[in-house]
Design a protein around this nucleic acid. Structure first.
Lengths: 253, 253
DNA sequence: ATCGCCCATTGACACAGGTCAACCCGGTTT
DNA sequence: AAACCGGGTTGACCTGTGTCAATGGGCGAT
């Protein structure tokens, strides 16, 4: 409920007293982030292992693919894009992470990050050293359970994306992405119908397996049909129900 | 360390005494399955919570989407296909699971299975009740770590599939699947170049976001180019290196 | 054997989305 | 203010894959 939307207005300063005050107990995201389902004193324990660095500026990396894996990260503000480079040198966007969401879990298996993570805008993240989280999880079973759930959720989401890519048209994919962002906005108690897209058209296309041109055309088409109103990255969903219908599509029947 | 490679040679018989004797300690898959990295006495503890039911016949379900989630499963023999039904009623294959592989982890987050699991041929699975596994994990940190790794691996694999679907041609997708099965064969010390595809062309197409017709045409083309030899479901990779090149593709350059 | 069924293959054609190219717009450099 | 640059939009055309339809082959049931 701060007046400024930017968590750290003086982002150039090395230390931002704003950030130093943050902890899981008072973070306004603690009902949707890792601490969910933890007791107050357990949150304090979790809090002790979490590290909060300086904010990332747009374009800065949180980690690179193949960096040794040490931590997972929770987004506190801003937006992070995860991507990997395919063997033939192309970028593949694997996900967008918004405040309250946890990224980096794909690095656990190989002890190296499987993808790179880059700030799409000025962002703040909480670093959660994985060793400590593992230890703590053996002492707080509900934390272990919750973390299992987080990973399982990531799997479910990836599988939904797989379905989207393998079965749905360009329009359906884009409608689905817009609705996904919308519902994640709602989870944070922000407007579900008006928001700013943190990522470029190119990123959207890359994520959804489409070219920029197609993304642009679909946006234009949606605009013409008055399903949405776009002004560059500012977006308003005018008829979310219609979009929902497109995604849940009767067409195939 | 058994002499027979097939854990249940007389697979038509309702009860196969072989199966009743199986435990993690003597299972020939224990170097690639869950017990990996456990001590002997820890394996015994794991073994105690694992349940081994009767084999599944082809077409039988291990669980259905939306069944309450209680367990994850390790395949001991045969092959399992996981799939979900999209909101417009189409099937989406989300994965094929071969011996030594663990499935069902997408159910953890919602306490319900996110997909259905069906035997592609006569199969045997080990059921691992998740509550018990969680408890045991708090006492055996290496088990917890390994299970985290398994889930992370599933995430990585899903992301690879996402990349495949969003960036690669029909030929590349199919080449990639063949190589994936090949390497999983090798992991089990079976031939990496000759094997039987347990799934139908339709399933392959569904999994890879292609139609049956396209799958069939690509198989024919590969056959004509003498990259593979196909006889219905029997497959031989004649030039795995060429296939590998197709997947790692220079083309885009 | 014969029937029926399902899976696989092949061909002809259509179309969604990719490719290539031109242009626009807002911001930054000179 | 001119030149530049990256991101976005739009148009014209092309192509890989889907769609539809016909045919064949394997296998279980009778």
């Amino acid at each position: 409920m701060t007046t400024s939307t930017n968590p750290c207005p003086s982002e150039n300063k090395k230390h931002c007293h704003h950030d130093m005050q943050v902890n899981c107990g008072n973070c306004r995201l603690n009902t949707i982030c890792l601490p969910i389902a933890l007791e107050t004193d357990q949150i304090d324990q979790l809090d002790k292992i979490i590290q909060r660095g300086r904010p990332l500026r747009k374009g800065e990396h949180l980690y690179h693919a193949n960096d040794p894996f040490t931590s997972v990260y929770a987004v506190r503000a801003g937006a992070i894009k995860c991507y990997s480079i395919t063997n033939d040198g192309k970028e593949q966007v694997t996900g967008f992470y918004l405040p309250g969401e946890v990224l980096g879990m794909d690095g656990i298996s190989k002890h190296r990050h499987g993808s790179s993570a880059k700030a799409l805008e000025t962002s703040a993240v909480c670093e959660i050293p994985f060793e400590n989280l593992g230890d703590l999880s053996t002492r707080i079973p509900s934390l272990q359970r919750h973390f299992f759930q987080l990973m399982s959720q990531e799997i479910t989401q990836d599988q939904e994306l797989i379905t989207l890519l393998s079965k749905n048209s360009a329009e359906q994919r884009i409608a689905a992405l817009l609705l996904s962002i919308s519902s994640r906005q709602a989870r944070r108690k922000l407007s579900a119908t008006r928001f700013r897209l943190p990522m470029s058209r190119t990123d959207i296309g890359n994520y959804l397996g489409l070219t920029v041109e197609t993304v642009s055309r679909v946006f234009s088409r949606f605009q013409k049909l008055e399903l949405i109103a776009v002004d560059n990255k500012e977006l308003e969903l005018l008829k979310p129900d219609t979009l929902r219908l497109m995604v849940d599509g009767e067409e195939g029947e």
